[in-house]
Design a protein around this nucleic acid. Structure first.
Length: 186
DNA sequence: AAGAGGTGCAACCGCCCAGGT
DNA sequence: CACCTGGGCGGTTGCACCTCT
């Protein structure tokens, strides 16, 4: 069993200070996202590499949207979740400026509650494809990016119908892994 | 005004996978 | 082929902030 990184070195835990943020930003702006494991030492941070990566991806990246999730984004999250299950990184990948952590948090705090209230037949905690091996790592999802300027909210009925009703097609690619072609046109 | 309870989000933990040796 | 290491991901936790009484 590997020791957690914070047991190996003198590692800070908990909330990041402004100085730490600035060091990380400065380092990445100069050197780019390289080897996360060696980054903390190189950047003069008492953090583990994973922590740095998380902080950068979820909070410091310049292309992140900081405003709350819009209605159309929420609808897309629901649709993608019905197709992909808890594959937050894939879902976030279709939402420009959003992170997997943000989408995951939003799902757990807002949408799950909403669905439970609606009495959805979908179990918000157990998506259809949660354990589908075809949707494990390596899956290529071909889903149109949400247009940032989408003005009309996406409307669709939540039901217990399977993923195909949302227009998903699963094809195999060369490596034998499936490609997902999701027709999520508005 | 103050305390209790609820909520939301940042961060951590542990597991899995891919690539290197 | 087995093992090791780093990167990435999903689940969960902890705490600051907000709302209610």
């Amino acid at each position: 069993m590997r020791k957690p990184c914070y047991e190996k070195y003198e590692i800070n835990k908990g909330a990041w200070s402004k100085q730490e943020d600035q060091k990380l930003i400065d380092y990445i702006q100069k050197h780019g996202e390289g080897c996360w494991n060696s980054l903390p030492h190189a950047a003069g941070l008492s953090r583990c590499g994973k922590s740095c990566r998380l902080r950068w991806i979820n909070y410091l990246r310049p292309d992140l949207k900081r405003e709350s999730i819009r209605e159309d984004e929420e609808d897309l999250i629901i649709r993608l979740h019905a197709l992909l299950g808890n594959r937050w990184s894939l879902i976030a990948g279709r939402l420009p400026g959003r992170t997997d952590n943000e989408v995951k948090n939003y799902w757990n705090t807002h949408i799950r509650k909403k669905l439970l209230k609606m009495g959805s037949t979908l179990d918000p905690k157990k998506p259809h494809h949660h354990n589908d091996p075809h949707l494990r790592k390596g899956t290529t999802a071909t889903v149109p990016l949400l247009q940032p300027d989408t003005s009309s909210p996406i409307s669709f009925a939540l039901s217990s119908s399977d993923s195909m009703s949302t227009g998903a097609e699963i094809h195999s690619n060369k490596s034998g892994l499936p490609d997902l072609n999701l027709d999520l046109s508005l």
